[in-house]
Amino acid sequence: MAVTLTVNGRTQQVEADPETPLLYVLRDHLELNGAKYGCGIGQCGSCTVMVDGEAVLSCVTPVLLLEGRRVTTVEGLGTLEKPGPMQQAFIEEQAAQCGYCIPGMMMRAQALLQADPSANEAAIRAHLEPNLCRCGTHMRIIKAVMRAGEIMRQNPQSGGAS
């Protein structure tokens, strides 16, 4: 069966059962490997992507729910040559150790900052609570998200993901 999905601004047909979790479609069909498989039951946040600007756990989201919705993955935030503010901030703060949780962290943080670029540290901590990091990189992650907020505030056009 074919499902129609809009991912990172591109609308495409995917041959997949509508019950398939979005994460599998992203990784196996569209070869977007940014979102990670962690727990598979919505408890760790490493599969987080954005749907219409809201952070969503792609491992527990069947694609049948996504008709006409806009999905954004970490690949949609920028490119290697031209990283988006969130990516740039994570690079500048070197906010990754093993890196497995980072795409999920970035996407949940992106959803927060797109809605409120001036979110303070308390808001960032509360918002990122569902996302786990086993390396203990949290302090750098928070710093990076604060920096991403600064970049977005200085250049309001820069923050929007495709």
Binding site: I41, G42, Q43, M50, V51, E54, V56, L57, P130
Partner: peptide, 10 residues
């Protein structure tokens, strides 16, 4: 106990 939120999806 915990359950993921479906606010952003449904």
């Amino acid at each position: 106990a915990m359950m993921p939120a479906y606010r952003g999806v449904l």
